Amino acid sequence: MILKGAVLIPDIPDSGGDVLDEETIRKVSLIFNRQVNLIDVQHTLQSVGSILESYITDDEIHFLGNTYPKGTWFVSVDVTDPEIQDAIRGGEYTGFSILAAPYRSVEEMKREGVE
Score class of each variant (00 low, 15 high):
residue 42 Q to S: 14
residue 49 G to Q: 04
residue 6 A to C: 03
residue 12 I to S: 06
residue 98 I to D: 04
residue 75 V to N: 07
residue 78 D to A: 15
residue 33 N to Q: 11
residue 67 T to Q: 08
residue 80 T to G: 13
residue 40 D to H: 11
residue 34 R to I: 05
residue 104 R to A: 12
residue 93 Y to H: 09
residue 101 A to L: 04
residue 51 I to V: 14
residue 92 E to W: 08
residue 96 F to C: 09
residue 113 G to T: 00
residue 48 V to K: 12
residue 84 I to T: 15
residue 113 G to E: 04
residue 47 S to A: 13
residue 49 G to W: 08
residue 1 M to G: 14
residue 36 V to G: 04
residue 48 V to N: 15
residue 100 A to Q: 06
residue 79 V to M: 08
residue 24 T to H: 02
residue 109 M to Q: 03
residue 113 G to N: 08
residue 114 V to D: 03
residue 18 D to W: 08
residue 38 L to D: 01
residue 69 P to K: 03
residue 42 Q to V: 14
residue 105 S to T: 00
residue 69 P to M: 01
residue 46 Q to H: 12
residue 42 Q to M: 13
residue 30 L to W: 00
residue 29 S to F: 02
residue 42 Q to W: 10
residue 88 I to D: 10
residue 95 G to P: 00
residue 106 V to Y: 06
residue 61 I to T: 06
residue 34 R to E: 04
residue 89 R to M: 13
residue 86 D to K: 15
residue 93 Y to V: 07
residue 60 E to M: 02
residue 75 V to H: 11
residue 95 G to E: 11
residue 64 L to H: 13
residue 51 I to Y: 13
residue 4 K to R: 06
residue 4 K to H: 06
residue 16 G to S: 10
residue 29 S to L: 08
residue 58 D to T: 05
residue 9 I to A: 03
residue 30 L to Y: 01
residue 98 I to H: 05
residue 66 N to W: 12
residue 6 A to D: 08
residue 64 L to A: 13
residue 15 S to H: 01
residue 93 Y to L: 10
residue 24 T to W: 01
residue 71 G to R: 07
residue 94 T to M: 08
residue 23 E to G: 01
residue 65 G to V: 05
residue 80 T to V: 15
residue 86 D to Y: 15
residue 115 E to L: 01
residue 7 V to Y: 03
residue 71 G to W: 07
residue 71 G to Y: 00
residue 25 I to V: 06
residue 76 S to M: 12
residue 5 G to E: 08
residue 3 L to C: 07
residue 74 F to C: 11
residue 48 V to D: 05
residue 111 R to C: 01
residue 67 T to L: 01
residue 100 A to L: 09
residue 72 T to N: 01
residue 81 D to T: 14
residue 33 N to M: 13
residue 16 G to N: 05
residue 3 L to T: 05
residue 35 Q to M: 11
residue 68 Y to S: 02
residue 44 T to M: 12
residue 30 L to A: 06
residue 32 F to Y: 14
residue 107 E to Q: 15
residue 50 S to T: 15
residue 55 Y to D: 15
residue 92 E to Y: 10
residue 109 M to H: 04
residue 69 P to A: 06
residue 65 G to D: 07
residue 84 I to E: 15
residue 100 A to R: 05
residue 32 F to G: 10
residue 106 V to M: 00
residue 103 Y to W: 04
residue 16 G to Y: 04
residue 106 V to H: 04
residue 83 E to L: 13
residue 68 Y to W: 05
residue 115 E to N: 01
residue 99 L to S: 15
residue 69 P to L: 09
residue 59 D to H: 10
residue 25 I to S: 06
residue 81 D to E: 13
residue 95 G to N: 09
residue 95 G to L: 07
residue 25 I to T: 05
residue 29 S to Y: 05
residue 94 T to V: 08
residue 23 E to S: 12
residue 5 G to V: 10
residue 17 G to I: 02
residue 44 T to P: 09
residue 114 V to I: 14
residue 63 F to K: 04
residue 96 F to M: 09
residue 18 D to P: 03
residue 77 V to G: 11
residue 65 G to R: 11
residue 3 L to M: 08
residue 11 D to K: 04
residue 109 M to V: 02
residue 74 F to T: 06
residue 82 P to M: 14
residue 58 D to C: 10
residue 87 A to E: 11
residue 9 I to K: 00
